[in-house]
Each structure stands twice: as structure tokens, then as C-alpha cells.
Amino acid sequence: DLSALRVEEVQNVINAMQKILECPICLELIKEPVSTKCDHIFCKFCMLKLLNQKKGPSQCPLCKNDITKRSLQESTRFSQLVEELLKIICAFQLDTGLEYANSYNFAKKENNSPEHLKDEVSIIQSMGYRNRAKRLLQSEPENPSLQETSLSVQLSNLGTVRTLRTKQRIQPQRTSVYIELGSDSSEDTVNKATYCSVGDQELLQITPQGTRDEISLDSAKKAACEFSETDVTNTEHHQPSNNDLNTTEKRAAERHPEKYQGSSVSNLHVEPCGTNTHASSLQHENSSLLLTKDRMNVEKAEF
């Protein structure tokens, strides 16, 4: 173990290094160091905050020279020094078990990766560091076993998940096959086929009936047209017969005018059967003409 005197000496050296690497504005270890034209180094955030307070150039807090945003430059070497100082402080805390008085939040800088452990060898070769390295080497064999167990647990979990997924996939297939086998029997399929065939026959029977009705309507229309044509021909046949009657009536009127007047009046009210309204109107006109002729003949006879 380190003596108290040596611990104090190391602590004083760390404090001196820390004062050199402090920012003059925030009085902390410089984060993202930036250098000016006057070779003074500050935190990048502190300098941008200072420049944004005034429009135009501002003055350096140490030498009062003008500073602009374009004049600022990043210093990589200074950032490396800060990183190495942080590593020294971490090693000091691990070796002594004491917390550094002016320690900052170094938890963000710590890294437990194997590459980081290899890099620590180049920091300080001390008894405390050696003991700590031995402890780490002793704890390393235990870690692979834990990793193997965790991997086995994960693989077993994956296997159970896969088996569950396969079961879920197989179950719908089985149910679907069961439904297909038990849903419709052979008799049901035959009945469905016969039902479809009967429906098709009914459709075939319905369509000819409609065509037959249309044919019957067409035949009825044709018969009505033929009947009207026969009526017209009958009226045409009746007209010459009426003319013959008129000639006979004229002759009778010349011989017996008194008797014919009474008979002509009675004939006005008689309509021949089986004739249309057109034929009756023609008869009325003929009878009126005959009456006028008879009157003329009677007057001539009187004179």
C-alpha cells in the first residue's frame, strides 16, 4: 500500500496539472479547448457565450486583445492532455480508494470495455495498479461463464418462442383441414349439385314461356288486323247491294208514291245487322237523297 506522504505528493502534482488545464472563465477543466490569436485557451462554450454578448469583436479576458469567431481554432494537443489527466485522476481514485477533492464528473469518461483496460497499462506502473489488474484478471474467467449461461438462457427462450410460433402455425392448418373434411358430406355435395341443376332447368323453362307469350301476342295482333281488313271488305261488298236497293226503291216510288213515303220513313230507323257505323252513315245519306228525289217527283206529278 501507498504511504500517506506519497499520496499527498501525487495529489499535489495532480492539482498543479489541473490548474494549468483549467479554463480562466469557468475555472474547470477545459472541455473542447479553443485557442485565440494571443495563444490563450478557453472552453469553446465559454468563448461563444462571451462573443454573443456583444456585437462585433470582444476582448480576451487575459490580455484584452480583440477576439472574433473566425480567429478561434481548435487545439487537439490540449484536448489530449486533458484526457490523460482524467485517466490519471481515475487511476488515483481506484488505487487509494479516496475521492479526489477537486474531482469532476468523471463517470462519463469511464469505460469498462476490454480495449480501455489494455490502455490503462500505459498509465502508471504502481503496486495498487498491479493489484487491481490481478483482481480484474481473476474476475475475467467468471465473466465468460456468466456470458455462457446468459447465452444458453437466451437460446432456450428463443427455442420456446420458436416452438410456440410453430404450434400457432400448425393449429390453424389443422382446424382448416378439419373444417374441410367435416363441413360438407358427400350427400350434401350431391344435393347441392341437384339443386343447381334444377335451378338451371327452371331458368331454361322460364325463358321459352316468355317467348311463347310474345308469339301469342303477335298472333293476336295479326288476327285483329285481319279482322279489321275483313270488316272493310264487308262494308265494300254491302255498298253495291245498297245501291241495288236504292234503284228498286226509286222504281217503286215512281209507281206508288204514297205507299213509299211511309216505308221510307220506317227504313230510316232500321239498321242492317253486321255493318259498322260507317255503313250506317252512308245509308242515312242515301235515304235522305231518296226522300228529296221522291218529293221532286211528287211535285212534278201535281203540276
Rank of each mutant, 00 (worst) to 15 (best):
A101P: 07
A4C: 03
Q138K: 08
R162F: 02
K109G: 13
C46E: 02
E258L: 11
E84R: 08
A16H: 05
A301S: 14
N242F: 14
L164A: 03
L29W: 08
R6Q: 13
C43S: 01
K221I: 15
L21A: 08
K54E: 06
R165L: 04
S150H: 02
S126K: 04
I124E: 10
L50A: 04
I123S: 15
L136S: 09
Q138A: 14
K300R: 09
V153T: 15
L158A: 09
K250S: 14
V34Q: 01
Q205V: 06
P257R: 08
L155M: 15
E142K: 10
S152Q: 15
T207P: 14
S228Y: 08
L245F: 11
Q239P: 06
T166A: 09
E32Y: 04
K31G: 04
D244G: 05
Q138H: 11
Q261V: 08
F106L: 12
N143H: 14
E9C: 00
N12K: 08
Y260V: 12
A133T: 06
V298K: 13
S79E: 15
L282I: 11
C26G: 00
D200S: 09
D231V: 03
A107L: 09
H256Y: 13
R162C: 06
Q73A: 05
S219C: 14
P257C: 14
E285D: 10
Q154F: 03
L203S: 15
N111S: 05
R165S: 01
V10T: 05
G199M: 07
K222V: 09
Q147T: 08
E74G: 04
R135M: 06
I123Q: 09
P208Y: 12
S150R: 12
C63R: 00
S152N: 12
E258S: 06
E32G: 02
S71P: 06
Q18R: 03
Y129T: 15
C63A: 00
D95L: 00
L181F: 11
V153Y: 14
Q209F: 09
Q73F: 10
L62C: 09
Q18V: 08
S145Q: 08
V10K: 00
T248P: 14
Q154K: 12
L51E: 03
Q93Y: 03
L27R: 03
S266D: 13
D188A: 04
T68F: 00
F42N: 01
I41K: 01
Y104I: 04
T248Q: 03
F45K: 08
G159P: 14
A133V: 05
R77H: 03
N52K: 06
